[in-house]
């Protein structure tokens, strides 16, 4: 069983960037820095591009959805950290240039990242979080005008939620 702790241990065994580990726990939390946001957005847009049969991550505001989702109290805090750390690790591998790479180079970078257990788990997590946006109820801010549902001719059931996360 691959526990969430093991995922995190994988990360530290790989020697996640030292500047990251030097930071205090407090600074990791709540506020996500702009660089990390952009890296995650670039990955989401690469995985869910605009010329696909399903709406793109960009059009679906999947990045905002992802950041709001991982910061909600219903979301596992360890996985939240993993999502953020994984983006930093990708930037370390790509010398901080991932967002500026060409489509081909992004593909190369992500496929190489996928070769590692850590990178593969992280990409899978980004994919899940993006799909959660595109295919969840529009109340969560992604799946704009039900475009995600329309693309697959499958719609959420009635009644629809009138509040996010049952208002807890």
């Amino acid at each position: 069983m691959l526990t969430r702790r093991k995922i995190l241990v994988f990360g530290s065994l790989m020697g996640l960037s030292s500047w990251l580990q030097a930071k205090s726990r407090a600074s990791i939390d709540r506020k996500v820095n702009t660089k990390v946001k952009r890296t995650i957005a670039a990955v989401q847009e690469h995985l869910f591009p605009s010329n696909s049969k399903i709406p793109s991550a960009k059009m679906m505001h999947a990045n905002t959805f992802l950041l709001e989702t991982i910061s909600h109290k219903s979301y596992d805090k360890d996985i939240r950290r993993f999502v953020l750390e994984g983006a930093k690790e990708l930037e370390v591998r790509e010398k901080g240039l991932f967002t500026t790479l060409s489509k081909e180079d992004k593909e190369r970078a992500l496929r190489e990242y996928e070769e590692t257990n850590y990178g593969s788990s992280w990409l899978s997590r980004i994919m899940t979080l993006t799909m959660e946006g595109i295919f969840s109820d529009p109340i969560y801010g992604s799946n704009k005008n039900e475009k995600g549902w329309q693309a697959i001719k499958s719609f959420g059931g009635q009644p629809r939620p009138n509040t996010r996360y049952l208002d807890v």
């Binding site: 219903s74 979301y75 959660e132 295919f135 969840s136 109820d137 109340i139 969560y140 959420g156 059931g157 009635q158 009644p159 629809r160 939620p161 009138n162 996010r164 996360y165 049952l166 807890v168």
Partner: peptide, 14 residues
Amino acid sequence: EFSKDELAYSRRDL
């Protein structure tokens, strides 16, 4: 109060 909110009911421990 029940809805068919997949994110809330099926994917989180709410």
